[in-house]
């Protein structure tokens, strides 16, 4: 049975929170993890795209650039002046 997009988004969010400060996650890392967890028949790449978009559009996660683009929690820019 297809997993609801909201549930995939929630699982992705948990992963981002767990990895915060330890490992930078790319969009493809999250997608692969969700497909491994739910199986491709229940959670497609397209579903993962939608889930990620939900997270980004709500502002719960943001894209950060450290040489490549990663999915992170919103935070204050380290390089920004106080």
């Amino acid at each position: 049975m297809p997993v609801p997009i909201e549930e995939i988004a929630e699982e992705m969010y948990k992963m981002v929170v767990e990895c915060e400060g330890k490992r930078n996650l790319k969009a493809s890392d999250l997608t692969k993890a969700m497909i491994a967890k739910y199986g491709e028949e229940n959670c497609s790449k397209e579903d993962c795209k939608k889930a990620l978009r939900q997270l980004m559009d709500s502002g719960r996660t943001v894209y950060s650039y450290f040489g490549g683009s990663y999915v992170t929690l919103p935070k204050k820019e380290g390089a920004a002046p106080d």
Partner: peptide
């Protein structure tokens, strides 16, 4: 110049390249 990596517009992951002065 210092490079920033987080600034952008809501929902997008591209189109903005963060830059700050190191002598503000």
């Amino acid at each position: 110049w210092k490079h920033g990596g987080i600034v952008g517009v809501l929902g997008y992951g591209g189109g903005v390249i963060g830059r700050y002065s190191d002598v503000p």
